[in-house]
Amino acid sequence: MIALTVNGETHQVDVDPDTPLLYVLRNELALNGAKFGCGLGQCGACTVLLDGKPVYSCLVPVAALRTRKVRTLEGLASPDGTPGVLSIAFEAEQAAQCGYCIAGMIVRAQALLERNTRPTADEVRAHLAPNLCRCGTHMRILRAVHRAAEMMGGGVRAVAEREP
C-alpha cells in the first residue's frame, strides 16, 4: 500500500510502487482531469501540481511522492463544487475543440496565476510552451488565461509585439 495526498485527501493505493502518478490518478482514484497524451513528458496533457509546481504526472513514480501534495484539475474547484476560476474562464471563452489538452492547460496556467496574476502576454505563452494542443485552440486558451487573470484581480499585461 502506498499513501498519497491528492486534492487535500490522503489515499492508500495498492499498486506497484513504480506506477506513474498519472495511472494512479486515473485508474485508482477515478480522476479524469490528467490525461495520457504521450507518457514521455512531451505534451503536458497529464499536468498536475506537485507542491504547487506543474509537473508531468506521467513521469512521477508514485513512490517518489512521499508527503508531497498533488493537486489535479478536480482539486481546483472549491469544496462546494464551484469550478475553479480558470475552468470558468475556459468555459466562458469556449476554449476547447476536442478538449483533450484542456485539463493540462488549465492546471499549468493555474501554477502561473498563483504566482503572478499580472504576467505579460509573452510570459503566458512561454509558460504554456510545454503543453501541446493539436486542434489549434491556442488563441482561445490564451484568451481564457487572460480572462482568468482578470477575474483573479490581475490581468495580462500587453507588451510590445514580439520582434524578430
Binding site: 479524469n32 482531469g33 484539475l73 478536480e74 475552468s87 468555459e91 469556449q94
Partner: peptide, 21 residues
C-alpha cells in the same frame, strides 16, 4: 449557444472514451 460538451472537459468530468471505466 455554449457547447454542451465543454463543461465536462474543463472540470475533469467523464468527457472522453479514454475516461470510461
Amino acid at each position: 449557444l455554449a457547447r454542451i460538451d465543454i463543461p465536462a472537459k474543463v472540470s475533469g468530468g467523464e468527457a472522453f472514451l479514454q475516461d470510461m471505466r
